[in-house]
Write a protein that binds this DNA or RNA. Sequence first.
DNA 1: TTTTTACTTTAAAATCGTTCTAAACTACTT
DNA 2: AAGTAGTTTAGAACGATTTTAAAGTAAAAA
Lengths: 132, 132
Amino acid sequence: MNNKEKLRNVGLRPTKQRMIIAKILLNGVNRHFTAENLQNEINSSGNSMSIATIYNCLKKFRNCGLIKQVESSKETAIFDTNINQHHHFLDEETGELIDIENEEINLFKLPEIPKGYVNSGVEVLIKLRRQI
Amino acid sequence: MNNKEKLRNVGLRPTKQRMIIAKILLNGVNRHFTAENLQNEINSSGNSMSIATIYNCLKKFRNCGLIKQVESSKETAIFDTNINQHHHFLDEETGELIDIENEEINLFKLPEIPKGYVNSGVEVLIKLRRQI
DNA sequence: TTTTTACTTTAAAATCGTTCTAAACTACTT
DNA sequence: AAGTAGTTTAGAACGATTTTAAAGTAAAAA
């Protein structure tokens, strides 16, 4: 499926700007990035785009499930092209994230989900400190 | 141990402002809060404090291990008085966090820690959606 | 096609949470 | 009591993100 179809499938108009971003993000390679990272890549691909458009687009992509936003207490929002359930190592010093595939963690026992709610995803974060 | 001793124990001077905040936070009751939440409580306790002092104090308290900061992609930093390893439910709609005690989750299998690092804490986040 | 409509992009301003600055203050040491 | 090192403060500054409102564009209707 090409990017135009991917966008149409989730109900987004394939505008010029969204296609440029889709080309960068939806190529099957998993990665973490910020809005600023993405703008730099757009620029170095010979294109340019308002930062407002980049934020609009990332929010739409996220809400449509094309990308994920990582739970992180960094000041800048971090996005992830890996939309499957998976987990992360976090280098507490640098903020760097490393993917952990879902199968590498086995959650043997889970607590009861509060009444009226359903589980919509489990994320495990393993924080790391450099060994001394 | 009283609050003055708690502060001294971690190498912090027990100033008037830190004692006010310690009285609110270090009373054994576990809770989540933001800097703004805390300022409101300080105000309604009849005291007042510069927002800069509140941020300074929260950062010091966190760095000294008196409180924790929650990994969350909310725009505002969320702190937690529960400093034991534990986990959270997250209501994705409202952002509300509910504690999950450490014993309620059993991580049966963990991935190998990357070379040169040590595990400095595991946080599990169970995201919740309201049942329809 | 052409026209219409709804959605999208944009630069610039605004907002929000947080940090910085530098002067006044205070806890602790001498 | 005096010195000094750490702390508090208001207000300015900052950085990430959102809003604004006007211009542009994709899709639908005619």
